[in-house]
Amino acid sequence: MNESAVARDVVVRVNGLVKRFGDFAAVDAVSFDIERGEIFGILGPNGSGKTTTIRMLCGLMEPSGGEASIAGADIAKNPELVKARIGYMSQSFGLYRDLTVDENLEFYAGVYELGAKKAGRVAWAKKEMRLEEIGGRLAGVLSGGQRQRLALACAMMHAPEVVFLDEPTAGVDPAARRLFWTIIRERAADGVTMIVTTHYMDEAERFDRLVFLSRGKRMALGTPAEVKAQFGEHLTLEDIFVQLQEKES
């Protein structure tokens, strides 16, 4: 993180964001900023509000309070502009299982109006996401790791500035997870801001910065080292996670 205010290039601003379902606040006045090209983590136990936060930031849910903007577009006032600037990979596999890998890519290329750039972008995505061998396979028969790479390809074909990945590595074997993280780092190196949720604690060290949520509230924010310091230097992130979960039950 760059501390000098001049050099900070903030692409995601979240200020006191709230989401209520009836009386229940699933996201409770959460604030954070994300800089361009960061790999930013949203961590927390089940039901802590990670998905709800991301959905609001993607224009899929209206916030009940607070404000946020993505690359200058206000999520409440201009959700459709937000949608054009981001990529999003939902927590459950959201692509068409009855279409092949190529057909899914073609579809999203059309939906994002890639026009003349289409062929080039599809080829780029297949190469970068390591999908070149399996273009003709139905998405429904892919392995967990292949599915997630296809979903990431569809979410990134239109070269968005900011990409949201909701638990991309859940239920994926260790080798596939490692490959997926390699791809995330490569994309961030291109200057794309990658926002990733997880509850695998061994992944926490991979983030440039992270926010810790529990019951919809922000418990910590900063680099992995800063978060550890905040809870006591002797604790691992795993310990903090377990502590927060115990406090909850």
Partner: peptide, 13 residues
């Protein structure tokens, strides 16, 4: 129901 709608409505369609 299959979850494809969430991915569909996050596009500029």
């Amino acid at each position: 129901e299959t979850g494809t709608l969430e991915q569909l409505i996050v596009t500029p369609l």
